[in-house]
Design a protein around this nucleic acid. Structure first.
Lengths: 233, 233
DNA sequence: GGAATGAAGTGTAAAAATCACACTAATTCT
DNA sequence: AGAATTAGTGTGATTTTTACACTTCATTCC
């Protein structure tokens, strides 16, 4: 059944930039989740998970649905990034893409096996394959936003598992910000925010002194946020 | 001539949040440019300038065109804000709005008389009339973004005329951030960035000591920006 | 033209935050 | 038992931020 309008309309899509991080890897690196396209255009090329928005769903719901359908990921907190809409960005005609991004811990998020997710894969953002559409630009925009944001909001924790060590946290920041940080000063600063709770547990199975495990106190952060609390790394 | 598609498509609009500021007013206040709608829906209600995107123009070009057509304003630097797309936001059906915002000096921007701009008017953002669609939400989002942004990027200058005094600049920051700032500390900080050029001129026609007039050195800022220069008020 | 007005313009000392820097402690492996 | 490896900790120097009050000068008013 065709749909007819008095004026031409662009098509509307959403795309998801999912940042993943594996704290266990020696060569810690930010990763991005891509899927291999199995239809034209750009068949066989890698692309961001995403697709067309349905008429009755919100933009964010569309992004969540496409993400789940294409990669098996669900329950991620998506945040709107930017809307891309140059007339030439899609060879099929005018297509507007509203992009969303999210941070996940790579080890705790298994890519569901039974679905379309066969073709979903993590890529180090330093070593991207050729991408469909303008997805390279979209990813660059997302990385910029992540770098800007991670310094002023405690969102880095979302990339780590529930329990993590201070060294893991520091390495994460060093990876995302591409700098090195002083261990003592970093710990002092993190401690000063009083956002971490010592679980009492320690890391096990390492061939060296076991590190304390901490969790991020989301409730406390929400409280502090209301009163103009400022976080900064 | 009708346009037909195999799947339904939402309509696509742009909306502009134009912040204006008049440094000469005693009760300095942020203003927002609104137009009175002369067609349904919401006929007679105030709304953000904006309208439908044409198939061959970029989103930003559409925003600029609508802004010019409806208010006479041109040559403003628009920055994309957010995309609003809940299914119920427009009674005519599914309409997505990509919003853009800009800062202008209210005195130097005359609202062109000959155009549709008859119905364009500045409103203090503390005293908004009832607004069409979800434009209240859009404005709230824009104000939040402006407050966040003005502290870390020297965009406040766009709200002032080309030549301004340090007191005018301070009052502007106090207005936008809704705080009061120490005069000496403010001046020290501004001076430390070396982004202002003393024009050698002074303010005239005031019943008190004349203040020095400064201009913002855009070129220098662009240079510094490349090398990771950080601005903060 | 002298006095009153009112904002412009200026410095310093105390407090806080940031930075640079190196050793001991705990655990595992052999 | 000892080697290997990362965890964990404190201090002093430097820089940045903060709090605070008087003099200067162009205009206006008498």
């Amino acid at each position: 059944m065709p749909y007819t309008y008095t004026h031409p309309r662009p098509a509307l899509t959403v795309d998801c930039i999912i940042f993943g991080y594996d704290h266990r890897l020696d060569e810690a690196d930010l990763k991005i989740l891509l899927i291999e396209r199995d239809i034209e255009p750009f068949r066989g090329k890698w692309a961001l998970p995403g697709g067309f928005v349905r008429m009755e769903e919100t933009l964010e719901a569309a992004a969540k649905r496409e993400l789940r359908e294409e990669t098996g990921l669900s329950n991620v907190y998506l945040e709107q990034l930017y809307t891309f809409g140059t007339p030439e960005r899609d060879p099929r005609g005018r297509v507007i893409s509203v992009s969303y991004f999210a941070l996940v811990n790579l080890r705790s998020e298994e890519l569901a096996a039974g679905t379309d997710a066969r073709s979903a894969q993590w890529f180090s953002f330093k070593d991207m394959p050729a991408l469909a559409f303008d997805h390279k630009t979209i990813i660059e925009t997302a990385v910029e936003r992540l770098r800007g944001k991670v310094r002023y909001q405690p969102i880095g924790f979302e990339l780590l598992p529930d329990k993590f060590t201070l060294t893991e946290l520091q390495t994460l920041y060093e990876t995302v910000l591409e700098t090195s940080l002083d261990k003592r000063n970093f710990r002092k600063k993190i401690e000063s925010y009083e956002l971490l709770r010592d679980t009492g547990e320690t890391q096990r199975g390492k061939a060296h002194r076991a590190a304390r495990l901490y969790t991020f106190d989301h409730k406390r952060y929400k409280q502090l946020e209301k009163y103009g609390f400022l976080f900064e790394i």
